[in-house]
Amino acid sequence: MNVTDFRRRLRDWLDTHDLSPAADHSLDAQVAQLARVRRALWEADWMRYGWPAEVGGLGGGAVLRAVLGEEVARRGLAEPGIWSLVEVLVPTLIDYAPPALAADLVPRLLGGEEQWCQGFSEPGSGSDLASLSTRAVRDGEHWVVSGQKVWTSLAQYAARCVLLARTGGPGHAGLSAFLLDMDTPGITVRPLRTLHGVDEFAEVFLDGVRVPGDRLLGAPGDGWRLAMDLLPHERSTCFWHRIAHLHNRLDRLLADGCEPDADALGTVWLDLHTARCRSARTQRSLAADGRLGPETSVDKILLATAEQRLYDTARDLLPGTVELSDTGAWRTEYLYSRAATVYGGTAEIQRNIVARRLLDLGKE
């Protein structure tokens, strides 16, 4: 199915199937709504497009998944950040898990039966994955994992976790990846209270957690390669969804009667349009050869800049909405936007990557 037909038919289906969220905007409600939307789209086959038949998909390019997520974001059917986790985790399982394991588990995630999380960051090892200290030691047919993860999105809801741990010496080569069942004895999850008041992130403590040997993703020492393959997915289809959501918020800013400042609003629109054009190029690259590299750091910089400018403009043009209210979407989203230049790789690190790896400016 070509993209135009896919979008038209999907819109027609969404027009006749009400998947609108309820008035409850708590995190519990958002996660339940995400499962509801995925389940309905899976049962109607929309969620299957863009994935291979080996995991229950109907084939077609990743652009079909991008269109699906865009339409979901445009209609406000699911929060775009948690919706997009499948774009990070499913390609990883397809590429690195034993085929039978991927065939069994991926449909559970795509179909809304399960939620998964990603266990990478650690205290003191946020953007420097090579310094991870969580360790996995071989014990017969199992690996025994001990350590701590932090900033693990939705860990308190997750049935599985794609986990990085150290199985060898220091540096990149000593890292391996596992698919961990979150109900395994020895796992403690502690949600983190954040500035914007939503406990989306959690700490995960692992104390002698036994992981079956067939849950190793790839071979021992493949963890860094898996991470480098996974991270660009955060900046491709996921970003396409996020940009659609931010365009929605710009429309909402106008609908909420903001002060008519054409220069400020035009600057926000231009930032979003620039990020969207860059993301479209990334989508084409992904469709051409399925591989993305350091150039996605440009996407990260542009999106973070656009997001923060949008919410700065909302604060300026809706006086008091952010500062004088303890509740409301604008306040919550403004506070969350402060982290846009931190999570997923800080803006400073992204600029260093652009300078060193794209512009060949050296280390200084």
Score class of each variant (00 low, 15 high):
residue 92 T to A: 04
residue 90 V to A: 09
residue 101 L to N: 00
residue 78 A to M: 09
residue 96 Y to Q: 05
residue 98 P to Q: 07
residue 76 G to Y: 10
residue 84 S to P: 11
residue 77 L to F: 06
residue 75 R to G: 08
residue 97 A to N: 00
residue 82 I to A: 03
residue 92 T to D: 01
residue 84 S to Y: 04
residue 89 L to P: 08
residue 91 P to N: 09
residue 92 T to F: 01
residue 103 A to D: 14
residue 91 P to Y: 08
residue 98 P to S: 04
residue 92 T to I: 06
residue 93 L to H: 03
residue 74 R to E: 06
residue 98 P to A: 10
residue 94 I to Y: 11
residue 88 V to Y: 09
residue 100 A to W: 12
residue 91 P to A: 10
residue 80 P to Y: 11
residue 100 A to D: 13
residue 91 P to V: 07
residue 80 P to L: 12
residue 88 V to N: 11
residue 83 W to R: 14
residue 90 V to Q: 08
residue 94 I to C: 15
residue 97 A to M: 02
residue 103 A to C: 14
residue 79 E to R: 15
residue 102 A to W: 11
residue 83 W to H: 15
residue 87 E to I: 10
residue 99 P to V: 02
residue 84 S to M: 07
residue 84 S to N: 13
residue 102 A to Q: 13
residue 95 D to K: 06
residue 87 E to Y: 13
residue 82 I to P: 01
residue 94 I to M: 15
residue 102 A to K: 12
residue 95 D to S: 08
residue 97 A to V: 01
residue 87 E to G: 10
residue 78 A to Q: 09
residue 86 V to C: 02
residue 88 V to K: 12
residue 75 R to E: 04
residue 97 A to R: 00
residue 92 T to Y: 01
residue 80 P to C: 14
residue 91 P to G: 07
residue 81 G to E: 07
residue 93 L to S: 04
residue 80 P to R: 12
residue 90 V to I: 14
residue 93 L to P: 02
residue 94 I to F: 12
residue 87 E to A: 13
residue 102 A to L: 14
residue 88 V to W: 11
residue 102 A to F: 14
residue 96 Y to K: 06
residue 90 V to S: 09
residue 74 R to A: 09
residue 101 L to D: 00
residue 92 T to K: 03
residue 95 D to Q: 05
residue 76 G to N: 12
residue 77 L to V: 06
residue 76 G to C: 12
residue 88 V to G: 12
residue 82 I to R: 03
residue 98 P to T: 08
residue 91 P to H: 09
residue 96 Y to L: 11
residue 96 Y to H: 09
residue 102 A to M: 13
residue 95 D to Y: 01
residue 87 E to M: 13
residue 92 T to M: 05
